[in-house]
């Protein structure tokens, strides 16, 4: 084993873990069940803002409700969407297909 990478990557990883931890606890405190639910109106905005960034806009009618869940979660990872934006966009897609 190479100790140099251990040092570098160890510190990178611990910085990441601390950030992740902070973010995770942050949301735990802030988020109440109700405000976390998907919201159609916010979804329209988040969809218009984010869904034409990398490719042309995909028609909400292309997919069924369940398929929009997996698709928008897939896009969450790709685009760095927040969990709230993800739920809002899913609600919008499911209400428009």
């Amino acid at each position: 084993m190479n100790t140099q990478w251990l040092k570098i990557s160890g510190s990178v990883l611990s910085a990441l873990l601390i950030t992740a931890g902070l973010l995770a606890t942050g949301t735990g405190v802030a988020a109440e069940a109700d405000s976390k639910k998907g919201d159609f109106t916010r979804g329209v905005q988040a969809w218009a803002d984010n869904c034409t960034r990398c490719h042309d806009v995909r028609d909400p009618k292309e997919l069924r409700d369940d398929q929009w869940i997996t698709t928008v979660y897939h896009m969450r990872i790709r685009a760095g969407l927040t969990g709230q934006q993800t739920r809002d966009i899913i609600t919008f897609m499911q209400g428009s297909n």
Binding site: A20, L23, A24, G26, T27, G28, G83, Q84
Partner: peptide, 9 residues
Amino acid sequence: FISDYVALI
């Protein structure tokens, strides 16, 4: 999906 702001892949 760890939280609304972090996913571990």
